[in-house]
């Protein structure tokens, strides 16, 4: 950029920051603003968080109602299902908390407000992800964590350090996998602006699916969420290892330890999808 030098001299040296660091910084700044504003209305925050907690607990109420009629579902007892539920709900809750606003992207494209993000000196992904950061979504995380806590308290698991380490690992990589789904879904909305509900199928639908044992579902469906949209790595595969249950699809035991890799792969693919989507938006301005 030889021609830039003259102007550089006027404007002073332009600091160069890594894109990721810049993105995280912008994300942090924006969510801090939203949290401050939420905290200004503490009572309202407590109420909405509680409402969020109750609303998200309905899924588990359905499971409890089922177990009021039966002792096992797909060969799993209530604490085991609660274990799957807690992992799925907490991992999803973390993703929903951090970047759940991504599903508003289509609306932003439609009403043109995405443009206002494009003229700011921060990566658009970070700005969209942090937009309208809703601390009340802690309700879902709390609710999931409570169910998980109950499951851990009553399950007769022979704990080993490895098994214990699997819990945070699952929540973290599970959360990342769901984040990737959110980002990929948002990228799809660059193309189809009204299709935010499709994303719901994979996010809310995915977490609902994972709340039940894999043995409940048809093999093809399990194959689909293992090899195509790898949701099975959020909890099913690592959880069967912890529970000492048979692996679905006769998969080898080591797949239980692959979630971090799968999560990294998903994030990379979602990032690619996002870049493609944003590029297409910037060339079509649709």
């Amino acid at each position: 950029m030889a021609e830039a030098t003259a102007d550089e001299a006027v404007a002073g040296p332009e600091p160069s920051y890594g894109r990721v660091r810049e993105g995280l910084r912008a994300y942090r700044l924006i969510i801090a603003m939203w949290i401050r504003s939420t905290m200004a209305y503490r009572a309202s925050f407590v109420m909405s968080t509680l409402a969020n907690l109750v609303a998200t607990a309905l899924d588990f109420v359905a499971i409890l109602l089922m177990f009021s009629q039966v002792d096992v579902l797909g060969g799993y007892r209530l604490p085991e299902v609660a274990f799957l539920y807690g992992l799925s709900a907490t991992a999803f809750g973390l993703a929903d908390l951090t970047i759940g606003s991504m599903d508003r992207l289509g609306r932003r494209v439609r009403d043109g407000t995405l443009d206002t993000l494009l003229v700011r000196p921060a990566p658009v992904l970070a700005q969209v992800a942090a937009d309208r950061f809703a601390l009340r979504r802690l309700g879902r995380v709390t609710q999931g964590a409570c169910v998980l806590g109950y499951a851990l308290a009553v399950l007769p698991i022979a704990w080993t350090p490895l098994k214990a380490a699997m819990i945070p690992l699952m929540l973290l990589s599970g959360g990342l996998i769901f984040c990737a789904v959110f980002v990929a879904g948002a990228a799809f909305q660059f193309v189809a602006q009204d299709a935010s509900e499709v994303q719901n199928s994979f996010t809310y639908g995915g977490q609902t699916l994972l709340q039940y044992p894999p043995s409940v579902f048809a093999k093809d469906l399990v194959r689909g969420v293992t090899f195509v949209l790898p949701l099975a790595f959020v909890n099913w595969l690592p959880a069967v290892y912890v529970l000492g249950r048979p692996y679905p699809l006769g998969l080898p035991a080591w797949v239980a330890f692959t979630p971090p890799l799968v999560a990294a792969g998903c994030c990379a693919l979602a990032g690619l999808a996002w870049r493609t989507g944003l590029r297409s938006y910037r060339s079509t301005g649709s």
Binding site: M1, D7, E8, A11, E14, V119, R120, P121
Partner: peptide, 13 residues
């Protein structure tokens, strides 16, 4: 300002 806007959007911003 000597910057190609589409390539260096955030720097220009």
């Amino acid at each position: 300002a000597g910057i190609d806007p589409s390539r260096e959007r955030t720097r220009l911003a």
